[in-house]
Amino acid sequence: MNIFRLGGDMLHVVSIFLLLLKIQTSHSCAGLSLKTQILYMVVFSTRYLDLFFTKPWHSALTFYNTIMKILFLSSSAYTIYLMQKRYKHTYDKVHDTFRIQYLIAAAAVLALIFHLRLTVFEILWAFSVFLESVAILPQLFLLQETGEVENITSHYIFCLGGYRTLYIFNWVWRYFTEHRRNQWLAWGCGTVQTLIYADFFYYYILSRKQGKKLRLP
């Protein structure tokens, strides 16, 4: 564990907290993409299958990972519940039209071609990594469709992007300190994912500087 990894994880937790705060305080999920949330649910449930096989008390890191995995899975499920049941009437279904089946299919094909080992567990893990790298696209697409972005929604995406950026620093750190060399899959997909956020960052920082609400072109 290093400071970049811990900082990244904490930003991830903050982003989830912001998302739930936004829904709870405004009693609305307007501006949020249910499709992105569903993709994250698929990502977490295919990646964290090791929850069933790993003893949480194996080490301090395993314990930490287990807590975080359960947190991500449950908050993700809760968000989907809020969007689909409690605040369903505020959900912007008309604009949330990104075709996620293509993303899922592409991630599945890539995972079948590129994986670390030929096991079901490893292929599902690779699938989750590929899918996570593009999971934010429906959300960005929805923001572009509707034009204006609520502050809290932009903070949410900003935190998610920050979390990804810190993970890159974490990988560089581990490359040199632990000589981890076989993580090309996570590194490559993580970099693609961070680049997708970079475009959003640009407009986010521009809107901060001008003290205006964020508007995507």
Partner: peptide
């Protein structure tokens, strides 16, 4: 080699 060692991140 233990594959869980490879996936110690979130």
């Amino acid at each position: 080699e233990d594959s869980s060692e490879d996936h110690d991140e979130l």
